[in-house]
Structure formats: structure tokens, C-alpha cells
Amino acid sequence: MRALDNLTFEVPAGKIFGFLGPNGAGKTTTIRLLLGLLDPTFGRVEVLGFDSSKQPDEIRARTGALLECNGIYEQMSAEDNMEFYARIWRLPTAERQVRIKELLTQMGLWERRKELAGKWSKGMKQKLALARAILHQPQLIILDEPTAGLDVMAAMSIRENLASLADSQGVTVFLTTHNMAEAERLCAQVAVIREGKLVALNDPDDLRAQVGGYRIEVRGKGFNENVLTLLRERPEVSTAEVTSNQLIISLSEEVDSFPLLDLLVKAGVTVEEVRRGKASLEDVFVTLMEEER
């Protein structure tokens, strides 16, 4: 079975790069390739200027990872978890203590550092894992669904930390997520893969315009088949659909919405609210997955 198929992309330095795809698309395999934990059967992987097959140690020495499972030793205290990885990264003893304190304080975990990590909530463990991943100030951080299963506040806190890493410290972040709103908010560029193949690579805004196109959302009453037929006959309209009192008109190009609204009113529609915009990244993702089918 081919896990990845002619996958080619470049991650911009100092930015957050979103790597999106459904379950089984090849995201975890890609991460293992990037970390030099697997060798590609064909092609090559270069990370931070190092070949992942020939210089995996160089890559791992400069990278921090928070993988699908957080990798926290639950039978050890939070402080010992950090201490272990600080020793792995060979931080000098004095610097080690300062850095651990700085990160645990920043994540709001310092007061509870002596507790066994196994007794913590998932959100706290995830924050600890993120602190561990950035402990040695890596040039690149690889994060595999860092906010999966977290409550809103914990996820927001992790996102803030990530944004700050890229913005203020210039760290490159390679992020996989199923949360499209998160990718839309954080990522400077996103790649979408399916069955190991790259199906899209772009800035989220451009991708939304490119794949999802422009659209008008109309909330109101009187959306019947006749109205939809009239809309679909218009050349600038790609699709027109009604979902729970909301009419969504997808446009093939960015056009003035007034003629369309005029048409709706004349057809007897009561318009309560109109919103213009691009499709969300989630819509784009769904479209891309359906296109591939």
C-alpha cells in the first residue's frame, strides 16, 4: 500500500503551516518522514536543510514534536517530565531550571509541577507536552492535532502560544489539525492531502476564493423551488441551496449582489439578513474531498 504518493510541498520558514487531511490520509506518515523516523521509498525529504534519510539526527536535534499522543510519562511528575527532556536536549543545569520554570509558568502549570502528570486533565497534559516540545527552543515544531479533544479555553490557550511562537520567535510550525477554523485562524499556508496525494496548497484566504469561491448567504423566508430555479439560471451563480431558513448562493466570480437580491425580492422572498463572503476553509475542505471522490 502506498501511504504517500508524489507528495511535494515546501513549508515557509517562520510561519505556521497547516497540513490538513481526513483520517488515514497520510499525515502521521508525513510527520514520521519529516522527523527521519521513516525512509521514503522514493523521493527525498529535506528539513532545515538536512536530508531526512542521511541526517535524521541533525533534524531531530533542531525540532520539537508534539505527536498524536502527547508522550507524557504519567507516572512521573510534570517537573520530571520536563527535566527528562531538558537532559535529552542537554540544557545546562542552571539554564534547565530557569527554562522549565519559565515555560511551566507561561502555561500556568508551575504551581502544580510536583504532581503526577497522570492525574492531570487532558488540556493540562497537552500544555505540558507543548512546553516540552519548545523546551530547547527548536527552529521547527511539529504538532499533530495539538488541540484535539481539548475544551475551548485550553484549545485557545494552546493556539495563542503557537501564534506567539511563530510571530515573536520566528519558529516554523508544522501543524496538522481537523479543526478547520483553527487552521484558518493560525496558518499562513495550508496543504490538503487525501489518500497520500496533495490536493491543494495555498494561503487559506486564496484557497477559500480559489476552491470555495465567493458566496452570498441570505436569511429570510419564502425560499421555494421557483426561486432556486431562477437563481440557478443566472450565469454568475454556480449553486443555490437552502439549509434551515438560509439560502446559500455560490458565485463563479465576485459580482455585485444587488441584482440577485432584487430578483429574490421580486420572487416574493422576505429578506432578513444578507452576508457576503468567501466559503469557509471547512467548505473548501469538504469540496476538495468530494472532488477527489
Binding site: R60, T63, A65, Y73
Partner: peptide
């Protein structure tokens, strides 16, 4: 079993 191996292998440890 405790899902800590992947992270350990992703570290710089030889």
C-alpha cells in the same frame, strides 16, 4: 502501550 515511545524516538537521543 502508554504512547510515550513515539515522542522518545522523535527526540535527539541516539
Amino acid at each position: 502501550e502508554r504512547n510515550t515511545l513515539d515522542t522518545l524516538l522523535a527526540s535527539r537521543l541516539p
